[in-house]
Design a protein around this nucleic acid. Structure first.
Lengths: 218, 218
DNA sequence: ATTACTAGTAGACGAGTAA
DNA sequence: TTTACTCGTCTACTAGTAA
């Protein structure tokens, strides 16, 4: 995205153009962007062309709304700032113990992954995965995590099945070493899958619903 | 700040130029900014001129560090994004009950303020202020709060003393109505001063050090 | 009121090059 | 190798104005 579009997009977002269409004339937009009506009009055409906004052009005033693509572009910039101001040397994600679907456990136990966990993380997973449901307020911390370079656990093929790359992040839960494992090609979910040399539920006496802090170190 | 400077400043920050001087040639900066060496050199001179960065220009490579002013400018942009993505209709600040210095209580009890609290907040403070020490991880939420339009409680003069403007924000602590009061001209502190028609310590059975969630509604 | 075209100007950019 | 000057080009802006 052209950097100059970010400014206009951000000001539109502050006026509420993410949730709804907002009525704003090119003159008014020009005022908030500190430019002429003509330039603001041109900027709107550029944003439309870049598919960052949509517009209803009525006879009176145009109505503008930011597209999902526009929101994504802004989030990218937002996440850069988060990395600058929030990331020191660690990131803490709050959540609660979840029994999850247990699907991750099957993948993680594959020999092809296990050898790499030992080599690259110096960690032999005890048993399956430990699942943490991320506090809804902190889902966006996943963006920050995923924009950070983790440890690449390479995919492989075994018995005609292919297993994809996995990104691992070293972490600690209540001072017990562990690692978060995220399939490289996965949709965002609110569950952190965690491996540890210990049986975390037993070691930390945790049950479903108990609050935990996952501290990722960089 | 010229908007185009923000991009360069942000990329420098991501390279670590907030904490330390970083070695970066104009050619390298040009690569990360996707522009020529010449333009990157010019951009550096502009940033220097705007006092957003400082530079050691050695014989080999220049070393660049972002100034406090530069950091402030970035924070302003960061806070705009926070308002866009973090602020829905409320903001929750975590903290713990603190006995504070009790100074706020004296000011707040002034007749000039009290009448306005009743009119503008529909709230007759019970007694002094209730102090919450903000969780260190959430101090920056104050930036977000202060960049939000609160309710202006006008200053006044009484018995030869002048009392300044105060900004109030309606809030709830564990479902009890209250309001945060912030002197307009004050340095940042980690204490929220809160007024409520109830004696919060007694009503909620709170003692120093107890964790509380302050939910600000907009 | 609007939006947005055209024309003229100021400013941003990169190539060449000096130090 | 550096940084950064000059200069030509090309883009971005605003004023004027049409629809």
């Amino acid at each position: 995205m052209d950097e100059k579009y970010a400014f206009a997009l951000r000001k539109l977002a502050l006026l509420g153009a993410i949730d709804d269409h907002i009525s704003i004339s090119s003159r008014e937009l020009g005022e908030t962007l500190e430019m002429s009506q003509q330039s603001a009009s041109k900027r709107i055409l550029e944003l439309l062309n870049a598919q960052l906004i949509t517009r209803d052009l009525g006879t009176r005033k145009q109505r503008i709304k930011i597209t999902p693509k526009g929101v994504e572009e802004m989030k990218r910039e937002y996440n850069e700032y988060r990395r600058i101001f929030e990331l020191t040397d660690h990131l803490t994600i709050h959540g609660e113990v979840s029994s999850g679907m247990g699907e991750g456990g099957y993948y993680i136990c594959q020999e092809g992954y296990m050898t790499q966990f030992k080599e690259k993380l110096d960690l032999v997973p005890f048993h399956g995965t430990f699942n943490v449901r991320i506090d809804p307020n902190e889902i966006s911390k996943l963006d920050v995590l995923r924009s950070t370079a983790g440890i690449l656990i390479e995919g492989f093929s075994s018995e005609g099945r292919s297993f994809g790359n996995v990104i691992a992040y070293k972490a600690r839960i209540h001072n017990v070493d562990c690692a978060i494992v995220v399939p490289e090609r996965s949709h965002y979910v609110d569950i952190l899958e965690i491996i540890s040399p210990y049986h975390l539920r037993r070691t930390l006496s945790l049950n479903d619903g108990d609050k935990v802090d996952v501290k990722i170190t960089f």
